[in-house]
Structures are given as C-alpha cells and as structure tokens.
C-alpha cells in the first residue's frame, strides 16, 4: 500500500514484559479512512498494541509508522495528530462535561471561539449539550463513554484509537454509542482503530479486521473474507449417535486437522481443499443418524472462534 494511503503500518512489532511476549511480530496496514477492528480475547495484546502505536511504549522489536511518523522516534508527532479513548474514559469526574472538553481543547490549542463552537457541536451531536454543566462523576457509564468519544474527536484528529469503547455498557447504551461512533467517524472522515472482543460490534462497524491471539496476528482481512475462510475450513455435524468413537474416526482421517465433540455437536477443522462428503459417509457408516451438516460459520463470531481454536 502506498505510504500516503496508509494510516498505520506495523512491521514485526513486538513488545516484551520480562519473559512475557505481549505483542509478537505484529505486521499490519490500516488504510486511511478505514474503520479497522482489532479483535482478540482479553490479554491477547490489543491494548499493548495501541500503546505501542501511540508511542506510549517502546517496542522491543520491529517498527511502526502512524500517519507517516515513526512511533519510536516521533511519538510526539503521532500523539499530536491522533485521538485516543483508552481502557478507561479518562474523564475528570469532579469537573463538568464542558470543563472536561474545554481542558482538552486547550491542550490541543484550539483558539477561543473555535473551542466554544467545537465543544457545542460535539456535545450537541451526542445529545449532551443540556447536561454540559453537570459534574461528570454523577453520570452513567454510557454517558461518560459518549463524552470520552467527544473528547477523542475534539481536535479533529486524522486517526482515533478506541480501546473497547462499548465495554461495560448495557446493550442499548452500546448500540447507541456504536451509532454515534459510526456517525461521527464518517462525518469527520477519520481513520478508526478499534479494539474489541465484541464480534457483532466489529462486524457492524469495521471495514477491515485483524485477529490477535497471544500477541500474534492470526488473520487480517475484511469481515466477509474471514467468514469465508472459516466456512472453507470448518464443518459442524449434529445428530444421534455422535460419541468419542466419532471423534476418533474423524481425527484418524488425513483430511481432518482436528475434531471435537461438545453439546452433541461434532466440530471438524478440515485441511485446505479436502472434500467433506467422504467424512459424512464415514460417520453414517459408523451408525450416526445425521440431522444436520453445516460448513463454516454464519458470522464473524464463528470465524473468530475458529481462529482462536487454531494452533491451540
């Protein structure tokens, strides 16, 4: 991808904490203007990656450039042009909503009239203008997250990092925040780097996703590409008579990478290019009364679970 079209480029990015390798050789490219989802379970290295990309941590190995700036040598320039909503909303709870935004507007040197206008525009856009003089500490978590999103976009950054923005919110508040986020991101034309372990959220919001597991990238692509990949590799069988013998039978087959049985459902990972029909026939011969055979996952969650299961 040409440099000008690339908001983030990481090559072999790694970070060790003592003997623990939190991020392990991550290489990825995020196009300008994309909403990029960074998926992974808790402790997989998502937050550490964001910290590395913001120049808040020095990498143990590899390089990363964000908006053309090397994060190792030019972290200040990266932070100058980025916004970040990290693990916590980072709001000053003794101050009012307006004071919080006013402080960060001053941090980013927004001139007086522009500061007022921008604070009004963002609070109004998120339905918080009427509550601007309230102390933030009294607000619900959903409202605080909204305000934190407004703060993140205050200085019109080219790129925003959102670390689990809907974590801890109830489904209604999360959906509302997602709508606000997409609306604001599209309106403001910013590139979004979003970490989440909520796959439905990633599927709704993201143009591209990367999946990280134990610090390593296991997949990068469009959500539909990941689904297709999982569909090709995975097969589920339900029916009567499935038992450990079925698992042993399938595991012994050279076209099967792995087989597992849970809740009466036999899940198979199949080698590339292998045909599934002989496997079904073998199960029938074993005496299994098959109810349903389903190839691949219907959504990103199943693709994600398949990726998480890989190499386990």
């Amino acid at each position: 991808m040409p440099e000008a079209d690339c908001a983030i480029r990481a090559e072999g990015l790694s970070r060790d904490f003592g003997s623990l390798r939190a991020v392990d050789g991550v290489s990825l490219e995020v196009p300008v203007g994309a909403i990029f989802g960074f998926l992974g379970p808790n402790g997989s290295g998502k937050t550490t990656t964001i910290r590395l990309l913001l120049g808040l941590l020095e990498p143990s190995g590899g390089t990363a450039t964000v908006l053309g700036h090397d994060t190792r040598t030019d972290g200040a320039a990266v932070r100058e042009r980025c916004g970040a909503l990290l693990e916590h909303p980072g709001l000053y709870e003794r101050l009012t909503a307006r004071d919080n935004l006013d402080f960060y507007a001053r941090v980013w040197h927004l001139p007086g009239p522009e500061r007022e206008r921008r604070v009004h525009e963002l609070l109004d856009g998120l339905g918080l203008w009427d509550r601007r003089e309230e102390i933030v500490g009294t607000w619900s978590r959903g409202m605080k997250q909204k305000l934190a999103v407004a703060r993140t976009l205050l200085h019109r950054p080219s790129l925003v990092f959102l670390d689990e923005p809907t974590a801890g919110l109830d489904p209604i508040a999360a959906a509302a925040l997602r709508d606000d986020l997409t609306g604001l991101a599209r309106r403001e034309g910013v590139t979004v780097f979003l970490t989440t372990h909520n796959l439905a959220e990633a599927e709704k919001l993201c143009d591209r996703v990367a999946v990280i597991r134990s610090g390593r990238l296991v997949a990068v692509g469009r959500p539909d590409e990941l689904r297709t990949q999982a569909r090709r590799d995975r097969m589920e069988v339900t029916g009567a008579g499935l038992d450990d013998r079925s698992v042993a039978l399938m595991t012994a087959d050279p076209s099967v990478e792995s087989a597992s049985l849970a809740d009466g459902r036999l899940t198979l990972r199949i080698r590339d290019g292998a045909s599934t029909a002989p496997l079904v026939a073998a199960l029938v011969r074993q005496g299994v009364a098959i109810d349903e055979v389903r190839k691949g996952g219907a959504d990103l969650e199943e693709a994600f679970l398949a990726l998480m299961g890989a190499d386990a």
Partner: peptide, 14 residues
Amino acid sequence: ERHTLETLLASRLS
C-alpha cells in the same frame, strides 16, 4: 488512581 493519567499521556502534552 482515577485512571485519567493514561489519557493525559496519550495527548500531545510533553
């Protein structure tokens, strides 16, 4: 303690 430091550090301030 109030988890505001990281956001401050992620800003443009030196």
